[in-house]
Simulated scan of single mutants.
Amino acid sequence: MGKKYKFLAFDFGASSGRAMLATFDGEKITLEEKHRFSNDPVNINGDLHWDVLRLFFEIKQGILKCANSGDRDIDCIGIDTWGVDYGLLDENDKLIGNPYHYRDTRTEGMYDEAFKLVPKEEIFKETGIAFNWFNT
Rank of each mutant, 00 (worst) to 15 (best):
L64F: 02
L64I: 05
C66Q: 00
C66D: 00
C66E: 00
C66W: 00
A67N: 02
A67F: 05
N68F: 00
N68M: 06
N68V: 05
S69H: 04
S69I: 06
S69P: 01
S69V: 04
S69Q: 08
G70A: 04
G70T: 08
G70D: 04
D71R: 01
D71E: 14
D71F: 10
D71S: 09
D71Q: 12
R72D: 13
R72P: 00
D73A: 03
D73S: 10
I74S: 03
I74P: 02
D75I: 14
D75S: 11
D75K: 03
C76P: 01
C76R: 08
C76F: 09
I77W: 05
I77E: 07
I77Q: 06
G78F: 08
G78R: 08
G78P: 09
I79F: 14
I79L: 14
D80Q: 06
D80I: 14
D80W: 04
D80R: 07
T81V: 08
T81W: 00
W82Q: 03
W82E: 02
W82P: 00
W82G: 00
G83S: 12
G83F: 09
G83E: 11
V84Y: 00
V84P: 00
D85W: 05
D85Y: 07
D85N: 13
Y86G: 15
Y86H: 15
Y86C: 15
G87A: 15
G87F: 13
G87N: 12
L88Y: 10
L88A: 13
L89N: 14
L89H: 10
E91L: 13
E91A: 14
E91S: 15
E91M: 13
N92H: 13
N92D: 15
D93V: 12
D93H: 10
D93C: 14
K94S: 14
K94L: 14
K94W: 08
L95K: 09
L95Y: 07
L95G: 13
I96W: 03
I96A: 12
I96Y: 04
I96G: 14
G97N: 12
G97Y: 13
N98P: 08
N98D: 15
P99W: 07
P99H: 09
P99Q: 08
P99T: 12
P99F: 05
Y100M: 11
H101N: 13
H101Y: 08
Y102I: 01
Y102C: 01
R103K: 10
R103F: 01
R103G: 01
R103H: 09
R103V: 02
T105E: 10
T105F: 01
T107P: 02
T107G: 02
T107W: 03
T107N: 10
E108Y: 04
E108M: 12
G109M: 05
G109F: 05
G109I: 05
M110K: 07
Y111I: 04
Y111A: 08
D112P: 01
D112C: 03
D112V: 04
D112E: 14
D112R: 05
D112G: 12
D112M: 09
E113Q: 13
E113D: 12
E113V: 12
E113G: 02
A114M: 11
A114K: 03
A114R: 03
F115L: 07
F115M: 09
F115R: 04
F115P: 05
F115A: 05
K116S: 09
K116P: 02
K116R: 11
K116C: 11
K116Y: 02
L117Q: 09
L117W: 02
L117D: 06
V118G: 03
V118D: 01
